[in-house]
Every structure is written in C-alpha cells, then in structure tokens.
Amino acid sequence: MKTRFINPVLNKEIKLRFRSFKGFLGVFFYLFALGLIAIGFIVVNTIFSSSAIFSPEQSRAMFMVLSFVQMALILFMTPGLTSGVISGERERQTLNILLTTPQSSTSIIFSKLISSISYLLLMMVSSMPLYSIVFLFGGVSPSLIVSTFSLYFVTMITIGSLGVLFSTLIRKTIVSSIVTYGITLFLTAGTAFLTIMIGEMFFYQNTQTVFPYLTAMVNPFIILLSTFEPYMTDEIQRQTGIDFSLVTSFIITYVVITILSLWVSILKLRPKMKAKKGTINSE
C-alpha cells in the first residue's frame, strides 16, 4: 500500500530537488520578494503617510497586493519548474532509461507534475507567516484567504500541466519554456488586454458580446480581483449578458485544460505502438 503513494519517480524528484542548493535558494528568494513587498507596503503606509496607524482597510489592501504578487510569482515560477521535466530528462539522456522501466506513462507524468507542484506548495505554505501580518491588523475574512489559496492551487496545476505537456511534446527545454511562458503571458496580460479593449469597444457601440466574458474567464488575475471586488465580475456579466458565475467558468476551463494536457502528455510520452497487424504491410 505504501508503495502506491511513494512512487519512485516522485520520490526521486523530491529528493533531488531538495538535495541541490537551488531548491533552498528558490524558497529564500520567493520569501524575500514577498517579505520585501509586505514590509515595503507597511513602511509606505505608515512612515510616508499623514496617519501613523495601519488600519484594517490598509491591511486589506496589503492582502490584495500580496495576493497579486503571489499570483504573479506563481505564474512566473510554474512554467520554469514544469517546462523542463520531460525534455530535461531527454536532454540529460536519462529519459530513455526511465522509459524502459515498467513504470506507466501515467505515473511518470503525474509524479513529475506533483513534484513540481509540491515545491510550489512548499513556497506557498512558507509564505503563510507573512499573511499573519494581515491577520494582526484585520480586514480580511478567513474564507477570502481560503478562496485565494484555492485559486493559486488551480492555477499552478493548470499552468504546470501545460508546462509538462510542452515539455513532453517539444524536444528542447528552452523552446518548451518559451512556449509555456508565452501561453502564460497570453492567459494573463493578453486576455486582460483583450477584455479591456473589446469591452470598451462594445461599450461605446452599446451592443452585447460574449467575448469579454471568454477572455476574462481564463485570466487568473481577473478572477482573483473578482474574489476581492465582486462588482468587477458583475460588470462583465452585465455587459456580456451571461449570468453564469465567472469563477465557476474559470475553474471548469482550467480543469478541462489540465485534463487535456495531462492526457496528451501521457499518450505522447512513449512512441505509439501499432495495435493492429493489418497496417504492417500497407507501407
């Protein structure tokens, strides 16, 4: 029973990740960046403002800033951590050997994804003490924190799966990274730009279109914002005439992307062997 959970590849990945100094360095810089922003925020709002107190409203604003920065860091790190998981093994010439072991493609792909995600989760958990500053000053409900972290989780799994997909399909890590970062950039900056642009365009023409809804529902930042300021999404829903919850659409879309990415990765990891004998002589 134990071996079912402690998969060899997963075990190996985690062992190797934390054996290298890079693993610790990653966590350090992650916390350093977040900590700097949290402290900077407090400093700016107390020392350089007329009031010397840090109010719950400001604490809430700080939570938002931290959450956005954390989301940005996740979006920045996930492609880097996952876009080389398969192609990296291929480049180091260890993939062939791994593929001749009887481990299923499914278990290899999942182990690779889970090990990358668990590293990100470690960073997220280790950033929680920073959030205690927010709790100290109040202004944020625990349910908001839960929904924010759930959003991170969904986002990192989906972007991670895309990284694994491109790492499987593309031979070179560098190319796979560029593609994964490109798609991540499109899902964030690209869709935000389109949402605003098209929203404005149709706003002046006073016609309804579903387009801003479609671009907004895949953008993690818009979704994150909507959990803080629900009127944002109400505006998009009003404009597009779609009554369906934007957050639900986001989760459904991302889960579908995840499933598809992992499915294709599993299929493509090993060469497709012919199942029928009839095809042999057709060449």
Binding site: T3, P8, V9, N11, K12, K15, L16, R19, S20, R92, Q93, T94, N96, I97, L98, T101, P102, Q103
Partner: peptide, 22 residues
C-alpha cells in the same frame, strides 16, 4: 549514450531503478 542523475549516490541511483521495477 546515457546520462545519470548527478546528485544521486551510486546506491541511491540503483535503488531508484530497483524501485521503478517494483
């Protein structure tokens, strides 16, 4: 041509593949 996982010790390297073969 093959690569090895550099940060493994010899024993761990074999142990990983042993585990992979169940």
């Amino acid at each position: 041509f093959f690569g090895v996982y550099d940060q493994f010790k010899t024993v761990e390297y074999l142990d990983f593949y042993g585990a992979s073969y169940g």
